[in-house]
């Protein structure tokens, strides 16, 4: 009996490994291996045209150049990360508010499944054109002689064009929110739709106000969706340099931009070192988010 059970256990273990195998292989080949290469290259030396496979921490030391000597002023890398974090926080807070509201509306106010599907598909409309076109489209709208400025001027609200509408942090946040709110809506909606409606009825019956129901029932139960959505948005915004570049008029620093500039100059190890730093940074944020909610358990 016990032997049979052990055999059985062994077999199911083997089946489990086999089932996980293909994913592991893909994960190993296309994620872990390249990542390991990036980390290795980040510790190599380089010149103007080639990578020199010889240990050098130059990529890192040069990146943090001046961080101690320039105190109390911030060095380039800290300034850049501070800026990226600020943008990231703003985009996260706004997409969360909008995403949560939209998901709430879809999950609790729209009764029929058909309409829920139709309306969530509507949310994907911004994704029907390419990322770059969506960004370029802001320029005639927000520019100095754009629709918004000329509209406001005609209405007599302002007498000269608002410069901060385009090529500014405002423009960057606006474009990022427009691009990524959907990534917040989907997981939150997915969590909300699974909330047992009877819980809400029970709360109502027990005399809870709408606010109490939201705070004590909906938000805690939608937490996995919120965390997953946050992970999506934060990882994308931390690494983004195209949107920040186009909407910020290339005048706003971002962690991704530093990597791009180094890559274009063929300083691959320095770019790799910056990529590792960015990865570590993003990992820290995700790790602290995962402390709030055990995503695996919730799923």
């Amino acid at each position: 009996m016990s032997i049979a059970r052990t055999l059985n256990d062994a077999r199911s273990e083997l089946v489990a490994w086999l089932q996980a195998g293909p994913m592991m292989l893909v994960f190993g080949l296309f994620f872990l291996l390249p990542l390991a290469l990036v980390i290795i290259v980040s510790f190599w030396d380089y010149n103007e045209y080639e990578i020199i496979p010889r240990f050098s921490a130059r990529g890192y030391t040069e990146t943090f150049e001046g961080c101690l000597t320039e105190l109390p002023n911030l060095c380039t890398i800290l300034k850049t990360y501070l800026k990226t974090l600020k943008l990231c926080f703003l985009v996260w807070a706004i997409t969360l508010t909008i995403g949560f509201t939209v998901a709430y509306f879809l999950a609790f106010h729209v009764r029929s499944t058909t309409w829920q599907i139709v309306l969530s598909l509507l949310c994907t409309i911004p994704f029907w054109t390419s990322n770059v076109i969506r960004m370029i489209a802001w320029i005639p709208l927000l520019g100095r002689n754009g629709l918004v400025n000329s509209g406001l001027q005609k209405a007599g609200v302002i007498d000269k064009p608002l410069e901060w509408l385009l090529f500014s942090e405002f423009a960057v946040v606006l474009a990022l929110v427009h691009l990524f709110t959907f990534f917040m809506v989907v997981p939150i909606f997915n969590s909300m739709i699974r909330i047992d409606k009877r819980l809400i009825e029970a709360a109502y019956d027990a005399g809870a106000t709408g606010w109490q129901t939201l705070r004590d029932i909906v938000i805690p139960l939608a937490k996995p969706g919120i965390v997953i959505g946050s992970i999506f948005v934060i990882t994308i915004v931390m690494g983004d340099f195209i949107t920040v570049g186009v909407m910020g008029g290339q005048q706003i620093a971002s962690a991704g931009k530093i990597i791009e500039v180094r890559l274009n100059a063929l300083h691959f190890p320095a770019a790799a070192a910056n990529a590792v730093i960015l990865l570590g940074f993003t990992f820290l944020i995700i790790a602290s988010l995962s402390r709030l909610v055990d995503v695996r358990k919730e799923l």
Binding site: K83, A253, V261, R262, A265
Partner: peptide, 18 residues
């Protein structure tokens, strides 16, 4: 392309961050 290209590129990043 300058001899000090590496240094210049770092300074350029500093300029963008300023």
């Amino acid at each position: 392309v300058m001899d000090e290209n590496d240094y210049m590129v770092r300074k350029w990043n500093e300029f963008i961050a300023a």
